[in-house]
Amino acid sequence: MKIGLYFGTYNPIHVGHLIIANHMAEFADLDQIWMVVTPHNPLKKKATLLDDHQRLEMVYLATEDYPKINPSDIEFKLPQPNYTVNTLVHLHEKYPTHDFSLIMGEDNLKTLHKWKNYEVLLDHYDIYVYPRISEEEENIELKSHPKVHIIDAPIVEISSTFIRNSIKEGKNIQPLLPPKVWDYIDHNNFYKK
């Protein structure tokens, strides 16, 4: 089974995340998308980051009607701070018959050379890249790498930061969130302070 790993803090998960995950599930050669919730890095200031399990719950709520998209808490069990390459080693041990790939935005591809053991990632894993709006035409060397697949996915310019700030300002951003996620956030008064 070919699994696309889509990492994120999902603070909160929004319709943009779902559009990208669903597009990858339906139009790339992937059988499933695992939305890997990244745990809070203890070395970073928490600020507005909700608890790991609250963010995982929102991903569950958002994806329960999408059989090809599954939430994953795999990184919750790994030592922190964690690196993608370590997560992949752990996943291979746990699911030896699965073929894992990475899903990332074009902005992440630009900085991939700064990731720990990025050469290992490029040598052993397919990387599916969704486009981002860019001010200038950028020459990303890695775009032509044989393991990198640029997917013609919809460009979605919604950010979790924008959503959190809008909730804090009392704006109605309901259309940007899956209904069950909006209900969960509203019920728990998240991001209002």
Rank of each mutant, 00 (worst) to 15 (best):
K116D: 10
L61G: 04
A62E: 10
H98F: 04
N108Y: 01
H98A: 14
K77L: 07
I103F: 00
E106M: 04
F100L: 05
H14I: 01
E119H: 10
E57Y: 02
H90R: 14
N108L: 03
D52P: 08
L18M: 06
L43H: 14
L43D: 15
F27P: 01
H40F: 14
T38K: 11
Y118H: 09
T87F: 08
G4M: 01
P71E: 12
H113Q: 15
Y66K: 06
Y83K: 08
N82F: 07
N82D: 11
G105A: 05
S101K: 02
R55A: 15
V15P: 06
I13M: 12
S72P: 11
A21S: 03
M58W: 04
S72N: 12
V89S: 13
H23W: 01
T97W: 12
N108T: 04
M104T: 02
D73F: 10
Y66Q: 10
K110T: 08
G4Q: 03
S72L: 12
L112S: 05
V37E: 11
L112P: 13
Y6A: 02
P42M: 11
L109Q: 04
H23E: 01
P12E: 05
Y10V: 10
L78F: 13
I74F: 12
L43V: 11
I74Q: 15
D65P: 10
M24R: 00
W115P: 06
G16H: 04
W115I: 05
I103N: 01
A21K: 00
H23R: 01
A25Q: 02
H92Y: 07
A62F: 04
G105H: 02
V120I: 08
D29Y: 01
V59I: 06
I3C: 10
K44M: 09
Y60A: 07
Q80A: 15
K114N: 13
H17V: 00
G8E: 06
E93Y: 08
P39R: 12
Y66F: 07
I20K: 03
G4L: 00
Y118C: 05
K110V: 07
P67W: 08
M104Q: 01
H40K: 14
L88E: 07
L49I: 10
E119C: 06
N86K: 12
E119T: 05
R55E: 10
L109F: 00
A21H: 02
Y83H: 11
K94C: 12
D52K: 13
G16F: 02
H40P: 15
P71K: 14
T97G: 09
L5S: 08
H92P: 08
V37D: 08
Q32A: 03
P71T: 08
Y10F: 12
D31W: 00
A47S: 13
H40D: 15
A21L: 02
D51G: 13
I69T: 11
I20C: 03
V120L: 07
A28D: 00
G4F: 01
N82P: 09
N22F: 01
